[in-house]
Each structure stands twice: as structure tokens, then as C-alpha cells.
Design a protein around this nucleic acid. Structure first.
Lengths: 342, 342
DNA sequence: CCGGCATGCAGAAACGTCACAGCTCATGGC
DNA sequence: GCCATGAGCTGTGACGTTTCTGCATGCCGG
């Protein structure tokens, strides 16, 4: 390449990177020759030399053997889309690397930093990354004392309080909760916010907990909740499938939604807009989270922003549909496919 | 590192890679020291030296400004999941790189090969990659004469014929088609298969075409199709949203599904299982495609398999639901969340 | 005519790895 | 006693960049 253009290697590098003291004529000439030869600087060599790969990891902590947790797939898909978008906009590419993947894959790719979704208590991979000085930003408060560089999470307490207030305003007298048995932060914060709210308004808590990763336990728990003697007249489900679970359980008990039972669940599923009746959902706005996480990560990589760990709490969106309104505002036919705005 | 273990650089390399002539004692010693120091061989240096990065690209040809096409999102999500899985199983990591992304991102990452989803006629990026000798495998027959190393696609003709036969068997007398105006292979093959079938059985073709990337045109086209004087009594929609579009249009014209109108559409949406009535869909089995594409790509990278271009045609799956059966087999309550197999 | 100073470029080192050739000892056969 | 053999290790590039230093050259003021 350098020979073809009749200049030195240094000049080629300078011309292509816009550095050094070169007259425009030389720069143009070098670029023109490079173009003609189809020459591309070697990414590997550049990475070796500069210590920057332009790659950031997207790590999913997996429970099963599959690389993605399907329970939160709609969340993950949207989050990954936004993260990819944000990374590309700043000149980085995203590599999907489940925490459970073979060790050799991890050590074979040079990462400038990584995003960790929902890190578990003492994830060995994350700890390893941090020890190597690679910036790590997590989606979700890091459990344990994982020393991540920054994290982004939703304001789960505020979200739960908002929903409970909304249900109470719609006429609910006794609000139940469908929650999980695991000790992750999301479940813990949400449940404790529920209990606090109950205490504040003087309602006896009514809840059922089940192992959230078990795809069948949810339906059983929903059934249990509606079978109780102190059956609630409104339920909030913390997990994505709870909406359909609760709807099915309500049908089995002959309960009409929303007349006999108000329903809200936390989910990104678009399908909840078209169930019978449409179910109100709490959106965690995964797109916003994904973008924020990547911005923080790249800031950390590039050394801009504060040297301190940053934590960013993002609001959620309560999408009110027929299932949580006693007097639904005339059921109009919704226009075909209104693109979801963000 | 070499100094810490009291051996030479070469010995470290050999010990860690299981090469050379070293007694087990030395190997163990080196590994132990490496472990203690938290030493990891530099991926960048290895890539530079060996010419292999262990990275493969997943390229989406985009139409709009966003990195993913939302119209086929369920397809893409599942395909990407399977592809990631397959790549990891063989020690490769996946990088998501929209064809439209900034040029500097493309040149900043060393790819051993790349998967292209639905390459457009003369994609400059793909052509560029091939010219550089990087293996490219495409999901979908490459349009034009893009010189990819291999491709995988569904058997679209067979799929259409299967659906039309199914609808005819269910009692349809005049089957309509909702198709696209673009010239991509999927649309072309499917439409011509429809026309051929019509000719064979002696039915006058009844179809409407619309620009598939326009999120609103579909509803209009569905309406147009059902407003025709020669209104079909069954419709197959080639695109993901057609199911709901057609269902809405049918309601507007007071047509009952499946009694007055049989419906099938091509989609991966799980939501079609719970519409009223549930809509029969043609699944392209994106998981299978993603896996196959990655296997072919890695084979090409590693030089196994034939040196010739390979083309692999995969079967589709017709999921028959109430919308395409005149006599639905008693509407049972489906069990809660049956995990999709495959 | 000479020192100072830009300008335009080239040389060389370094990044960390791997492949190859080679070097130094024992050991053993004859 | 000496060569052949092989085991166990080391030294030396080379991969293709970037970056730092430095060499010419030309121009200017004095």
C-alpha cells in the first residue's frame, strides 16, 4: 500500500487518520490509491497498537442452558436493539456474550467494556472483568457488592406505588400481588414497596410468591391468589406472563375483568394491547435503559464524565388499558399498528 | 508473565496452548502462575498473529434509519438468538452490524466472516466483504448475483402451495393473496407460486400488493382485498402484520372468521395464538435458519466442507389454528404457556 | 551567508502473540 | 570416547498499525 502510493507507511497512516502535517494533495492522493486498491487498515493491528477494539460486550446472565432468558425476551430484545443503536452511533459495535458461554470465547475477544444485564450476586465473569480494569456498567442494581463502574435501573418502588395508587383510584379495596421467591433486587424492592404501601393505607397484604424462572409456576400461583378466602379485587403481577395467567385464572373463577377484578402486570409485550380485555401494563422502557447504559459505558471507556461510579434511576411508564379501569372510556377500534413511540 | 514464571515467552505460549514439547510439570507451573496473576493472553495480538478473530458479523440490511427492521422483528429476534447460540457453541462470538452503520465501525472490527440477512440487490457492504475474501453466508437467496459463499432459505414455493392446498381442503373456493410490491426474492417466489397454483386449479387470481415496509399500507391493502366485487373466501397474507390487518378488515365488513373467511399469514408472532379467533400462521422456523447459516459460515471460515457455494433449502411449518378450519375442533382453553419447541 | 523555523515526510520502536529454527544437555549405542 | 538422538527449552522474526523522533528542504530576517 505504502509502496503503491509512493510514500512511507507513516504517511499512509497519517493521511488516512487525518493526523500529522500533510498537505491536502498528499492526503487525497493516498486516499485515492487506498480506495483503488480496496485497502483497509487492519483492525487487529490497530487494536493491538492502540489498546482499543471498538467492541463492547452485551452480557446476559443466564439461568438455563440457552443464551437468553426467554421470560424477559421482549424486554431483552428492545433493550438490545437500543443498546446496539446507541453503540453504533458512537462508533462502537456490540458483541453478544452470555455470561455462561465457554471461557475461550470470552478470552478470545478484546472488549473495551461491557454491559451486564441483571448481574447475579457474585458473577465470576463480571468480577473477572472488573479485576482486569475493563469498564462494566450494569442494567439493574448490581446485587452483592459487585464493583461495577455504573448502573442504571428503574425506579421500582415508585413504579409499584404508582400502580397501587392507580388501582385504588379505580376503586380497588384489596390489592393483591403476584411476586417471586428469588432474592433479586427487582423482586425485593417491588415487594417491599408493596408491603410499605399496604401498611400506609391500612390494607392487609395479599400476595403469592413463586419461582419466576419456572414457566409453569406462574399460572398455579395466579390460581392460588384468586382462590384465597380473602380474594383480592385487584392484582398487580410483577412478571411478564402474569397478565395472561391472571386473566385465565379469573375466567376459571368466573371473575369479570375489570368489573370484578382489576389487573396490571409488568411487561413489554405488545400482545397485552389486544387481549380481551386489553391489560394495563407497566413498561420498564427497556429502550431508554439500553441507551443510557451504553452511554455511561462509553463515557467510562473514553474517560469522559465523572471518575466516580454513577447510578441512574429511570422512570417507568404505566400504560393504562381496560383491565384496570372500572369505567372504560368507550371501546374504540384502535388504529392499525400505531408505531410505539419512545 | 514469562519473567514471573521464570520461563521464556515461547514456553508460556506453548504451555497455555497445549503445543510444543513440554513436560506436564512445566505446563502446570505456567498455568498456575498465569492464574495467580490473572494473566489473559491478548486477543488483539493473537488476532493479528493468527489472522483469526473468532468474531462473525450478523448483518441486517436496513430500510429505514433504525438498525433493525421492525416488521420482521419476531423473526429476527429468534434467528439472532439461534445464530448466537450456534456461534458460541463453536467458539465464535457474534457482532451485530447493520449494513447501514457508519463505515468506521465496519472497518474497526476484524470479522472472520459474516451472516447477511436478506441481502438487497447490490449491497455495497456485502460486495466489499466478498472482495476482501471474507466468507459471507446469506439468509435468503442472494438477489442479483451477489457472490456469497453459501445461502440458506425456506422453500417458499412449497410453503405457498401447502397453504393453498390446506385452504382449499378447508373448503375455500376463491383464495386471495396479500402480497408486496417490492421485488425481493421472497415476494417474487411466493407470488409466482400463487399464480401457478391458481392456474393449475383453474382459479382466477385475486390479490392486492402493497409496499411491505410501510407500516400503514397493509391495513389499507387488506381492506381493498375484502372490498373487491370478487371477494375471496380465504386469504393468505405474506407479511407478519397481515393477520391482524385482515382480521380487522373482516370485522369492518361483518365477515366472520373462519365461517365467512379463512385466514393464514406468514409470521412468527406468538400473539396470533391468542387472537379471536387464533390465526393460522406459516412459520419460517428462523431458529433453524439461524443455526444453519452459522454452521455454513463457520465451515467456510475453517475450510471444512465443500469449496463450492452451498445452498440449503429449509422447510417451513404451517401452524393450523382456528382461522383456517371451517369446523374448529372444540375451542379448548390452551394450557398456560406451552414453551415453543425447536 | 547563516541561524531559526516552519513544512513535509521517513525511520524505528513498540504493542503481545505464535511459528520456526536452533541451542544445550543427557542418554545410549557401538 | 564419540556421534546420534531426543527432550526441554530459548531466541528471533513477523503480523500491521500508531507514535515519537528526526532528517531534509525551503523560506525568512539579519
Amino acid at each position: 500500500m505504502a509502496a503503491a502510493a509512493g510514500v512511507s507507511i507513516t504517511t499512509v497512516s497519517d493521511a488516512l487518520n487525518g493526523k500529522g502535517r500533510l498537505p491536502d494533495a498528499t492526503r487525497r492522493h493516498v486516499r485515492e490509491v487506498a480506495n483503488r486498491l480496496g485497502y483497509r487498515p487492519s483492525a487487529a493491528a490497530r487494536t493491538l497498537r492502540t489498546g482499543r477494539s471498538g467492541l463492547i460486550g452485551l452480557t446476559v446472565t443466564t439461568y438455563g442452558e440457552e443464551p437468553f432468558t426467554f421470560t424477559e425476551f421482549a424486554y431483552f430484545a428492545e433493550m438490545a436493539r437500543a443498546a446496539t443503536s446507541a453503540a453504533l452511533a458512537r462508533g462502537y459495535a456490540l458483541v453478544i456474550l452470555p455470561a455462561s458461554s465457554r471461557h475461550d470465547v470470552w478470552s478470545n475477544v478484546a472488549l473495551d467494556g461491557t454491559v451486564v444485564i441483571d448481574p447475579s450476586d457474585h458473577d465470576p465473569v463480571v468480577a473477572d472483568l472488573v479485576r482486569q480494569g475493563i469498564p462494566v456498567v450494569s442494567d439493574g442494581r448490581p446485587a452483592g457488592n459487585l464493583p461495577v463502574h455504573a448502573w442504571v435501573d428503574n425506579d421500582h418502588e415508585q413504579a409499584v406505588i404508582g400502580i397501587l395508587d392507580h388501582l385504588a383510584a379505580a376503586g380497588a379495596r384489596r390489592i393483591g400481588l403476584l411476586t417471586g421467591t428469588s432474592t433479586d433486587t427487582y423482586t425485593r424492592l417491588s415487594t417491599s414497596a408493596y408491603l410499605t404501601w399496604c401498611e400506609r393505607v391500612g390494607q392487609e397484604p395479599v400476595y403469592e410468591a413463586y419461582p419466576a424462572h419456572d414457566p409453569c409456576a406462574g399460572a398455579v400461583a395466579a390460581d392460588r391468589l384468586l382462590a384465597r378466602p380473602d380474594r383480592p379485587d385487584a392484582v398487580y403481577g410483577l412478571f411478564d406472563p402474569n397478565g395472561t395467567d391472571l386473566l385465565a385464572a379469573a375466567r376459571r373463577y368466573g371473575l369479570r375483568v375489570p368489573d370484578d377484578l382489576l389487573l396490571v402486570c409488568c411487561s413489554e409485550r405488545a400482545a397485552y394491547a389486544t387481549t380481551e380485555p386489553p391489560i394495563s401494563t407497566l413498561s420498564l422502557k427497556p429502550g431508554r435503559i439500553g441507551t443510557a447504559v451504553v452511554q455511561l459505558l462509553i463515557d467510562a471507556i473514553e474517560g469522559v464524565g465523572p471518575g466516580q461510579p454513577v447510578s441512574q434511576v429511570m422512570p417507568t411508564d404505566l400504560i393504562v388499558r381496560a383491565s384496570s379501569q372500572r369505567r372504560p372510556p368507550r371501546t374504540t377500534v384502535s388504529p392499525p399498528r400505531t408505531p410505539e413511540e419512545d
